[in-house]
Nucleic acid binder design. Structure first.
Lengths: 341, 341
DNA sequence: TATGTCTACTGAACCGGTTTAGTGAGCGCT
DNA sequence: AGCGCTCACTAAACCGGTTCAGTAGACATA
C-alpha cells in the first residue's frame, strides 16, 4: 500500500536507522549512502508518516488557537478570519497545521486549552485577546506548552509577544479631530478587561489631555454592533453631547453612525466618527469610515513565525510590528459651529 | 511521567491487551476484571495517548476544513466563523478536533486537501461553497477520504449532503417586493460558478416569472462590498433602473445601500434592498436590512454530526435543514410612484 | 473418561517512525 | 604488529496503543 521507511531501507539495502539518519540530515551515514537513500526514497515516493513521526518524537506538528467568543458574534469579527489566514501562510511553509477551537464560555475556553495540551494535539499555542491579569498565561505554563501572545500582557509572561501598538493610531485620530476643531471627543471602547480595550482608552485619554482638552465621555461597550448602538445612544442623549466619537472598532462605529443618521444627524456634519480595524466594508459605507487598519494577516503570519522559531529552540524575544496609521475618510469633518443640544 | 497503558496493566495485574479490551468496551474480559481495570485506570488518572491510538488504529480523530477565499476578504465573510463554531460544538462532544486550512488560490486549495489527506491529519472533510462541476468531489474520492458537502452538488457525489434551501427565502423576498408594488426587481448575485450563487439567481428568476413580471436585470458580482457597489452603480445607471434590488448577501447589500444613499436616493423610498445572511450588523444599519438568515451555526453543527456518523459507518444519506424565512426590516418599502429615471 | 467448546486471558506482533547500544572495518600512531 | 580511535552502519529497543494467535481452565457432551 503506502510506502514505509522499511520499504526504502530494503530497496536501498540498508537498515531503517540508516534511512532515518539520511532523511533527517543527521550524521551517521556517508555522503554516498545518504544520496543513494534519498534517491531511492524519491523514486519510491516515500512520505514520512506523520502519526508515526509524532509518536516517536512526541510532537504534533500543529499549533493551536482557541477563539473565545460568543459564536453568534463571531461572524461579525473581522479579525479572526484574516488572522488565521496569516497564521496559515506561515504554517504551510513548515508542514505544520492549525488546530482551531472555538469556546463560547470562559470554562469552555480553559477546557479547550487543557484538551489541546492533554491530547498532545499541538506543540504550541497562540494567545489572542490578551486580558488584564490573564489567567491563561499561568495555565499554559502549568501545562508546559509553549505559546506566543499578541501584545505583551501586563502581568509577567515567559512567552514572547508579537506587538502592534494601537495607541499611535488612536492618538492620531484624536489629533485629527482636534485639528478639525472638535473639543468634545468621546470614546466608545471595548471591554476594559482586554488590554487592547484599555490601551485604546488610555491613548484617547492621554491624547485629549495633551491637546489641552478636558476629559471626554467614555462608555465601555463590548465590540458588538448592539453595544456600539447603545453607547452611541447614551452619548447623544447626554447634555454634553460630543461632536466626535472614537470607537474601538469598526463594527461599533458603523452601528453608531447608522444610529446617528437615523436620528436625522449628519455624519460628519453633526457628528464625526472614527473606527478601528479598517474592515473591507469601511470604505463602502456612507460616508466611508475614517479608521485605523489592524493588519491581522501580518499579525498572524508573524505570530506563527515566532511560535515556530520558539518551538525550534529560539530565545523568547518580543517582536514589534509597525504601528498602523490612521486612514482618513469622509466620516470625519470640521466640528459643527452651531450646537444642536 | 505520564501514565501509560502498561502502568495500568501492571497495577491491575493483567496484560496490556486486557486493558485495551476493557477500556474500549470490547469482549474478551470478564465483567469483574473489566471493572477492576477501569477502577485502576481511573485511580491512576490514565488518559489514552492520542498519537499512539492514532498510529495503531490509523485514525486522526480530527476533521478538516479548507477555506478557499482571498484572505483579505475573509474577514468580511460572516459565514465561516459561525460555521466553524457550529462544527466545534459537535466535535468537542466526540473528542474530535478541527484542522483548518486557508487557501488563497485554487492551486493552494487542492494542495490543502492533498496535504490533509497525505499527512493523515484528518479522518474526514467538510466541503463548503460547492461549485458547479466541483472538481473537489473527484479529488476527495481519489484521496479516499470521506466527506460531507454543504448542499447537494449537481454532479453526482457519493458524499452525504447537508442541505439548506435558499430558494424559499429568495422567493419570499421577491413576493414581498411584488406585494409592495415593485415591478422592476433586479438581482445582484454571487459568482454563478457557485451553486448557491446559481440557485439564488434561479429562485429570483422563477419568482419573477411566477409573478407575471418580465425578466429583471441580473448582475453577477462576487459577494464582496466592492463588487456589490459596482453592480449597484451599474444597475442605477441603466435606463430600466430597478426600484428594488435583491442581493445574494448582506455585504453586497450594505455596500449597495450606502452607495444609493450617497447618490441622494432614499432607501426604501427610492430603492428597496434585501440581503442574505442576516449578519449581526444588518439590523443596526440605517435603514435596517431586510434579509434572509443563513444560520451557519446550525449548518456547521449538523455537517459535523453527519461527518462523524459517516466515519462511524453510517449510511450516506442527505440531511435537510429547515429553510430560512425572510426577515422584513425597513430597507424594503412600497415602490416609488414617481419614477426618477 | 475422553473430547470438544467456550470463556478469559496472555504474549507477541504490529503501526512507522526515532534513537540507542553495539559492531566491524579502516586508519593512524608507536 | 598491536593498540586505540573514528566512521559507517546494523540490530534492537522504544513511543503507546490495538489486535491477532495461542493457551489454560471450566464446563458440557457422548
Amino acid at each position: 500500500m503506502t510506502v514505509t521507511i522499511n520499504d526504502v531501507a530494503q530497496a536501498a539495502g540498508v537498515s531503517k536507522g540508516a534511512v532515518s539518519y539520511a532523511l533527517n540530515g543527521q550524521p551517521g551515514v556517508s555522503d554516498d549512502t545518504r544520496e543513494r537513500i534519498l534517491k531511492v526514497a524519491r523514486e519510491l515516493g516515500w512520505k514520512p508518516n506523520l502519526r508515526a513521526k509524532g509518536l516517536s518524537s512526541a510532537k504534533a506538528f500543529a499549533v493551536g488557537l482557541v477563539v473565545a467568543r460568543d459564536p453568534k458574534l463571531l461572524g461579525t469579527d473581522p479579525f479572526f478570519p484574516a488572522f488565521i489566514a496569516g497564521i496559515e501562510t506561515t504554517l504551510v511553509e513548515h508542514e505544520y497545521a492549525l488546530v482551531l477551537t472555538v469556546a463560547a464560555s470562559a470554562d469552555a475556553e480553559e477546557l479547550g486549552y487543557r484538551k489541546l495540551a492533554a491530547d498532545g494535539r499541538v506543540d504550541g499555542i497562540i494567545l489572542t485577546d490578551m486580558r488584564v491579569d490573564d489567567s491563561r498565561i499561568a495555565l499554559l505554563q502549568s501545562l508546559k506548552i509553549p505559546a506566543v501572545t499578541l501584545n505583551r500582557p501586563e502581568t509577567s509572561s515567559p512567552f514572547p509577544a508579537v506587538c502592534m501598538d494601537d495607541t499611535e493610531g488612536i492618538t492620531a485620530a484624536v489629533e485629527h479631530l482636534v485639528s478639525l476643531g472638535h473639543t468634545r471627543i468621546a470614546h466608545v471602547g471595548g471591554p476594559q478587561s482586554y488590554i487592547h480595550g484599555r490601551s485604546r482608552r488610555l491613548a484617547w485619554q492621554n491624547a485629549l489631555s495633551k491637546a489641552g482638552l478636558e476629559a471626554g465621555s467614555f462608555i465601555e461597550a463590548d465590540f458588538t454592533a448592539a453595544g456600539g448602538l447603545a453607547a452611541t445612544a447614551e452619548l447623544l442623549r447626554s447634555a454634553q453631547r460630543p461632536t466626535a466619537i472614537i470607537y474601538a472598532n469598526d463594527l461599533m462605529a458603523t452601528a453608531g453612525q447608522s444610529y446617528a443618521q437615523s436620528l436625522g444627524m449628519a455624519v460628519p456634519g453633526d457628528l464625526s466618527i472614527t473606527g478601528y480595524d479598517d474592515t473591507e466594508l469601511a470604505k463602502y459605507l456612507n460616508p466611508p469610515l475614517t479608521t485605523i487598519p489592524a493588519d491581522p494577516m501580518l499579525w498572524g503570519r508573524v505570530a506563527a513565525q515566532k511560535l515556530l522559531s520558539l518551538l525550534g529552540g529560539a530565545p523568547a524575544e518580543d517582536v514589534y510590528l509597525p504601528s498602523p496609521k490612521l486612514v482618513v475618510r469622509a466620516s470625519t469633518g470640521p466640528a459643527p459651529t452651531i450646537r444642536h443640544n
